[in-house]
């Protein structure tokens, strides 16, 4: 991303603030609801831009441990899914369960950390 001001995040922040502080108080009903949804969408995209490089790196580390070889995140993630599907992985493996718990926390941390299961699963 361009190391420039305003940054992508600052641009999105401005849109999020506009929706929350200007549009939402000015409209009611469906339009108010959709303005809030739109603001929440912007917020989650901001979290995704900020967090996904770290998440991908962490997941890649854990996937290399689980699968025992190197590779890029996308290939390794697909391989793990295929192994689970094909019955090659032990469903009771604590390392697998821990990886999946962390994946769920990471995805929800981007998409909706206010959801009730987030705090519970993060504990």
């Amino acid at each position: 991303m361009r190391p420039d001001r305003p940054t992508a995040d600052e641009m999105l922040e401005a849109v999020e603030e506009f929706l929350r502080d200007k549009v939402m108080p000015a409209v009611t009903g469906h339009l108010n609801f959709h303005a809030r949804v739109a603001a929440n969408v912007i917020a989650s995209v901001r979290r995704e831009i900020g967090q996904s490089p770290y998440i991908e790196a962490d997941q890649r580390e854990r996937l290399m441990q689980l699968l025992g070889h190197d590779g890029d995140w996308e290939t390794l993630n697909r391989e793990l899914c295929e192994d689970i599907r094909a019955g090659k992985t032990d469903l009771d493996d604590p390392a697998l369960l821990e990886h999946l718990r962390q994946v769920a926390v990471e995805n929800l941390g981007v998409d909706n950390p206010k959801y009730s299961a987030y705090a519970r699963l993060k504990e």
Binding site: L97, L100, R101, V103, A104, V105, N107, L108, V110, D111, N112, Y115, A117, Y118, R120, L121
Partner: peptide
């Protein structure tokens, strides 16, 4: 869908 991923892992 990621809310459901978290529910599933609980």
């Amino acid at each position: 869908s990621s809310e459901c991923e978290a529910d599933l892992m609980i």
